[in-house]
Design a protein around this nucleic acid. Structure first.
Length: 103
DNA sequence: AGGGTGACCCGCT
DNA sequence: CAGCGGGCCACCC
């Protein structure tokens, strides 16, 4: 267990299965925090390929951002069976999950 | 020690 | 439906 906020974010995000997504808000909430923005920063600084940061989107279904470019993020999501149109996840409420705090 | 920044969010016009 | 404003919190000068 890392005390680092960043590491906790990674632990959570790592639990998101392929074909599903989560939001910055939910991840923060799973940590018992409201640091939505800090979550984004943590993911931005992440370099570990094990962390599927592309599966984290904004609360309204908007893609948000991505280090390697939103375009790439969109491609990865589509590759996992998630429909993306006009920079937004279609029917995102159905593929979105609420991650649980890590013990 | 203080202030600015951001892969955000929500409510009100 | 689009835009604006205020709020949130960790991280970096």
């Amino acid at each position: 267990m890392r005390d680092d906020f960043r590491h906790r974010v990674y632990e959570i995000v790592r639990q998101i299965p392929s074909g599903k997504v989560s939001t910055y808000r939910d991840v923060a909430h799973a940590l018992g925090s409201r640091a939505y923005r800090a979550v984004g920063q943590a993911l931005r600084q992440n370099r570990d390929p094990r962390v599927p940061c592309h599966r984290v989107v904004a609360a309204d279904g908007n893609l948000g951002g991505f280090n390697r470019g939103v375009k790439e993020k969109e491609r990865l999501l589509k590759k996992e069976g998630i429909s993306v149109s006009s920079g937004k996840v279609q029917g995102f409420e159905k593929v979105a999950i609420k991650p649980r705090a890590d013990y």
